[in-house]
Design a protein around this nucleic acid. Structure first.
Length: 334
DNA sequence: AAATCGCCCAACCGCAGGACA
DNA sequence: ATGTCCTGCGGTTGGGCGATT
């Protein structure tokens, strides 16, 4: 099917936006909200195509856009996320609050890529350019190592990635299993391990393979929650994780919260495994359907807000090394 | 001072895919 | 099932601007 490009029409302005145009666009969006970009130019009195208006709004005028230089933290995040997602700028942008995909893409191409090359890191693979495995903190686990031998995984220092999650979640499962019942836990532990790597229904197999070598189970669905964020308690509203008021719909609300870009875009990572201090819980999506599990998880998360140091062990064990049986989980934390 | 170069980044382009009639 | 609209995405372009010659 052939479509006529929207900007082909005669008389439409292209190029840099003027202040007046910006004002018109802002005023219109404030009055009528986003969307309807095709008809917006006429209604707003702009001689631009809708696409141009949408881009101008999305990349420049939106009120939640953070202008100015990227912080070190932002840059680290971008590099880490790029190691996972590659050039999926929109996916990266969703994790960097206030930054647009365009901005991140530009920053990557003009600064970060060069910086990595300077440090001897291939910006495409995030591996050392000289062939040696890089110890550089800006690199991530080899995306291709998902199915490597266990020994390789153990020797990979980045294996610690997710292992904290594994321990934490094993603990959650353990406690939950003791308090609730074995069968539910078995469901959770279930096929291929309890908190396996994640892929959303739309995630490709290749993207799955980019994830942590420790947790990969390509067919599983899942979601990730930033453990550190949860543990420091900054991301959880009391209403979201209240163990006192149990509402069967609560987890729908959690989903809603997690989908809320302004509140959670930087915290809820449904595609990523992070590294070096930023660690992520991985939950099978079915967990969310187990209300009793989620309630228990909620309680434990709340408790753990004050005991984050428990997880700062020097040695961590990946979940793949742990016996998936209930007893195994039980023994694991002694 | 003028010309040239290189960098940066806003904006554009073409394509893909979901929604809907 | 098909066609169209609408939106989002990633890659690319080109104008502005400072640095260098």
């Amino acid at each position: 099917m052939v479509r006529t490009p929207c900007c082909r029409a005669e008389g439409l302005k292209k190029g840099a936006w003027t202040q007046e145009e910006d004002h018109k666009l802002i005023a219109y969006v404030q009055r009528h909200g986003e969307g309807g970009w095709r008809t917006l130019p006429d209604k707003a009195g702009l001689k631009r195509c809708g696409k141009s208006c949408r881009l101008r709004w999305a990349n420049y005028l939106r009120p939640d856009i953070k202008r100015g230089e990227f912080s070190q933290e932002d840059e680290d995040s971008i590099i880490s996320l790029h190691a996972i997602h590659g050039n999926k700028w929109s996916a990266i942008a969703r994790r960097i609050p206030g930054r647009t995909d365009n901005e991140i893409k530009n920053h990557w191409n003009t600064h970060l890529k060069k910086r990595l090359v300077k440090k001897g890191i291939d910006p495409l693979t995030h591996k050392s350019l000289n062939g040696k495995s890089s110890d550089h903190p800006e690199t991530l686990p080899d995306k291709g190592s998902v199915h490597q031998h266990d020994d390789d995984q153990k020797s990979n220092k980045n294996n610690a990635v997710g292992s904290l999650s594994a321990r934490f979640l094993n603990r959650v499962a353990n406690r939950f299993g003791k308090r609730i019942n074995h069968s539910v836990l078995s469901d959770i532990i279930g096929s291929g391990g309890p908190f396996t790597s994640h892929t959303t229904p739309t995630t490709s197999a290749s993207e799955c393979e980019k994830s942590s070598s420790t947790f990969s189970t390509p067919n599983s669905l899942g979601l990730l929650i930033n453990e550190n964020t949860i543990l420091d308690g900054t991301s959880l509203s009391s209403s979201t994780f209240s163990s006192d008021i149990y509402d069967p719909l609560m987890y729908d609300h959690i989903y809603d919260d997690l989908e809320d870009m302004t509140a959670f875009s930087s915290r809820f990572l449904n595609n990523d495994v992070s590294h070096d201090g930023e660690d992520f819980l991985m939950l099978d999506e079915s967990c969310l359907e187990s209300s009793s599990f989620m309630r228990e998880l909620t309680m434990i998360l709340q408790e753990d807000k004050i005991e984050t140091t428990v997880f700062n062990d020097s040695h961590v064990t990946s979940i793949s090394e742990v016996d998936d049986s209930f007893e195994g989980i039980d023994n694991y934390f002694g």
